[in-house]
Design a protein around this nucleic acid. Structure first.
Lengths: 233, 233
DNA sequence: CGACCCCTGTCATCCCCCTGTCACCTGGGA
DNA sequence: TCCCAGGTGACAGGGGGATGACAGGGGTCG
C-alpha cells in the first residue's frame, strides 16, 4: 500500500513515515503543495497536513480531490469546528487533530481503507482519469500543471473556473449535481441558491470558446461534454 | 436515509434525533442492545453509543457488524486510546467522542456515506440501486451519466422522464404501482389523481421510439419491458 | 494604487412540469 | 352482443422554476 504524506514539519513527518513503514506501507513524503499534486495520482491513500506554507490547506485538499479519489485523511493542528466541517465536506474521509495518538491514526487509516478498498472499485477509475491529462475534442486538461489548452493554445482560467472544469473532467461524461459540485469545491452546500457556480461555468465556456465543453443538465447539474461539437436539439 | 440511533440517554437521543431529522433523515431510536440488533437490518446508517447498560458496547458493535454492513459511527464518552482503537478495529467507520459538535458529527456522517453509498451525488433515485448501466433490447440506461441511448444514439430525456425510466430500470421486469413511483420520485403520493406520471411515461415512449420500453399494467402501475424495435406500419 | 477575482443581485429567457380536456381502450355485467 | 364505468393515451396551454447574461461591490495580492 503506497501512501502519500503531505507534511512540512520534518519531525512529524519522520515519525509518521516510521509508523507507516512499520505497518508495511511505502511512503512518499512531500513538504510542498506543488509536489503533493504532482504525486497524487500514485497514492493509494493520502495523509494531509493543512498547515503548509505555500498554499491554503483547504484549497490544496480540493485540488487533490479534483485529481485523486484515493482515501484521504487530514492530519492537522486546526481544530476549529469550521475547519473540521469544511475539511470533511471538501472530500476528506477523516479528520484527525494534532496532537494525536499514532495507534489511533493507524486504526483510522485501516477503517477508511476497509470502506474504499473492496467496494469502491466499482467506478473504473485508474486508467487515465485521475493522474494524467484529460482530453475531450481539442481541449486538454492537465491536472498536474493546472493548465487547459484549446486547439494547442493555452487558455488562462481562474482558480474557481479551473476547479469546476477539473472536477467535471475527473469523471468525463458523468453528471454531477449542483450540490455535489458546491460541496466538493466550495466545501459548502448552502451556496446552492447562489449564482456562483453558474458564473464560473459561463467563464469556462467563454474563455475556451467551447460552449459544449460543460453541458447543463437542467434541474440537476453539469457534466463534461464534447468540446468540438455544439449540442444538438 | 434511514438511521438507527442506539443511545440510552434521553436528552442526548432527543438532540440527535432532531439534528438528523432536520437533515432529512428518518430515525429509529433504541435504548437497549437487543432492540438495536433487532432493527439493525433496516438501517442505512448507524449511530452507536457504547455506554449501554445491558451489554458491553464493543460486544454489541461486533454483533451489529455481523448482521449489518451499513456505515456505523460510534458516538460515546469513552475517550481512551484503547477504546478508540478497539472500536475502529471492531468495524466502526468513525469514532466521535462526547461532547461533540453536532455540525461536525453531521459532516462525518456525510463523509462516511460518501464512501459507502455509490450514489452519493444527489437524489437516491436514478442510480441508487444499480451500480452499472441497465440494458434492455437496444436501449441502455446509464445512471452515472444520466443518459439513455437507443441503438447507440443518445436520447435526451428531461429530468422527470429520466427519473421515471431509471426508477423502473432499477428493477427490470418488476411492476411498480403508481403510488410507489409517485412516492419515490415526487415524494408525494397525493398526485395519484394527476396526469403527470402518464405524461412523462408518454414522453419516454415517444423520445425513445420504443413504445414497449415502459409497459402499462392497467389499474396498477408500470414496469420496464422489452425494448423491441418499432416495426410500425 | 491598480489589477484581478469572487460573490451577489437583477433581469430576461427558456422550457419543463402540471393541469384540463377529449377520445379510446379494457373489462365486467346484463 | 351491447352498454357502462373506470383507466389510460394524446394533446395543448399556462405558470413558474432554472439558467444565462450582465453589472457592481468587496476583498486580496502584487
Amino acid at each position: 500500500m503506497h501512501a502519500l504524506l503531505v507534511e512540512d514539519d520534518d519531525r512529524m513527518a519522520h515519525a509518521l513515515v516510521t509508523a507507516l513503514a512499520q505497518r508495511g506501507h511505502t511512503v512518499r513524503r512531500v513538504g510542498r503543495a506543488s509536489d503533493a499534486l504532482q504525486h497524487a495520482h500514485e497514492a493509494e491513500f493520502v495523509l494531509l497536513d493543512l498547515g503548509l506554507p505555500d498554499l491554503d490547506g483547504l484549497e490544496l485538499l480540493r485540488r487533490l480531490r479534483a485529481v485523486c479519489d484515493a482515501p484521504l485523511i487530514v492530519v492537522t493542528a486546526r481544530c476549529g469546528e469550521r475547519d473540521i466541517v469544511q475539511g470533511l465536506r471538501a472530500g476528506a474521509d477523516d479528520y484527525v487533530v494534532k496532537p494525536f495518538r499514532t495507534v489511533e491514526l493507524m486504526a483510522r487509516i485501516d477503517a477508511v481503507r476497509r470502506r474504499t478498498d473492496p467496494s469502491s472499485g466499482g467506478k473504473d477509475i485508474g486508467g487515465g482519469d485521475t493522474g494524467g491529462p484529460v482530453r475531450t475534442g481539442d481541449v486538454e486538461i492537465d491536472p498536474a500543471a493546472r493548465t487547459v489548452t484549446v486547439a494547442g493554445a493555452e487558455v488562462r482560467l481562474t482558480r474557481r473556473e479551473y476547479d469546476v472544469l477539473a472536477f467535471l473532467a475527473a469523471r468525463p461524461g458523468e453528471v454531477h449535481s449542483r450540490e455535489e459540485i458546491l460541496d466538493r469545491i466550495w466545501g459548502d452546500v448552502y451556496l446552492t441558491a447562489s449564482r456562483s457556480l453558474d458564473v464560473h461555468v459561463a467563464g469556462v465556456r467563454a474563455k475556451t470558446g467551447r460552449p459544449g465543453l460543460i453541458r447543463t443538465v437542467r434541474g440537476f447539474g453539469y457534466q463534461l461534454g464534447a468540446a468540438d461539437q455544439d449540442d444538438g436539439p
